[in-house]
C-alpha cells in the first residue's frame, strides 16, 4: 500500500502566492496597469503544445460545435515568439522536456502557462522511467485543468480562470530552480 504524499508544501506557498493577497502596484500607474491587463486578457494568443490525446480535444474545441472564439483565445500561433499563452496538453517525456523548456524561454514578455490534462499536470497514470511527473518541474504553471482528457467546457472554464488571474496581476514568471525535479 503506498501512501500518497501531498504534492507541495501548501502552508508555505499559500503565504507567498495566495490570490487575495496579491494587490495592484502603486496608485499612480493604476490606470495604465488596468488598461494593460484588460487588453492582455481579451486577446490571448495561444501556442498549443499538444503531444497526444489532449491535442485532439483541444483541436475540437475551436471547431464548429464548441467555441473558444468568444474569449478571443482560439487564435493559435504555432510560433513561440508571437504568443503569450502556452497550453501544454499531453504526456511530456524526458526526451521532450528540453524542447518544452526552450519553447518557453523563447516566448517574450508576460507569459502564462496552462497545464491541461492529467499527464501534463502530474504524469497521470504513467509513473515510469521516461515520463516527467508534472510539467511544473520544468516550467512555472499557472492553471491546472484535471481530466483525461478534460472536456471542452472544462478547458473554457480554465481560460476564464486564467483571465481572472491575469486581471489580478498574478504571474509566476520565475523558473522553479529550487523545486526538486520529479516531486
Amino acid at each position: 500500500m503506498s501512501k500518497v504524499k501531498p504534492t507541495r508544501d501548501f502552508a508555505k506557498i499559500e503565504e507567498e502566492f495566495l490570490l487575495e493577497k496579491l494587490v495592484l502596484t502603486t496608485k499612480a500607474s493604476g490606470l495604465i496597469d488596468w488598461l494593460k491587463r484588460r487588453s492582455q486578457v481579451n486577446s490571448l494568443w495561444t501556442f498549443p503544445f499538444g503531444t497526444s490525446c489532449c491535442a485532439l480535444e483541444f483541436m475540437s474545441l475551436s471547431g464548429e460545435t464548441q467555441s473558444a472564439g468568444e474569449l478571443g483565445a482560439d487564435l493559435t500561433r504555432h510560433s513561440p515568439e508571437r504568443s503569450d499563452l502556452l497550453v501544454v496538453g499531453g504526456t511530456i517525456t524526458e526526451k521532450q522536456a528540453p524542447i518544452l523548456k526552450s519553447v518557453y524561454e523563447k516566448m517574450e514578455g508576460p507569459k502564462w502557462v496552462i497545464a491541461m490534462g492529467a499527464c501534463a499536470a502530474s504524469g497521470g497514470p504513467y509513473n515510469t522511467y521516461s515520463v516527467v511527473q508534472g510539467v511544473s518541474s520544468i516550467i512555472p504553471v499557472d492553471v491546472y485543468i484535471p481530466g483525461c482528457p478534460p472536456s471542452a467546457e472544462a478547458v473554457i472554464a480554465g481560460f476564464h480562470l486564467m483571465k481572472e488571474r491575469i486581471l489580478k496581476g498574478a504571474q509566476r514568471g520565475v523558473l522553479p530552480e529550487t523545486i526538486e525535479k520529479g516531486l
Binding site: E94, K95, A97, P98, I99, N127, T128, Y129, V132, G182
Partner: peptide, 18 residues
C-alpha cells in the same frame, strides 16, 4: 536497458539537451 527484469521501472534519467 529498460525492459530487462532487473531494471527499476520508476528510475528516471533526465536529458540535458536534445
Amino acid at each position: 536497458h529498460p525492459l530487462r527484469k532487473d531494471f527499476d521501472p520508476k528510475k528516471r534519467i533526465p536529458l540535458s539537451s536534445p
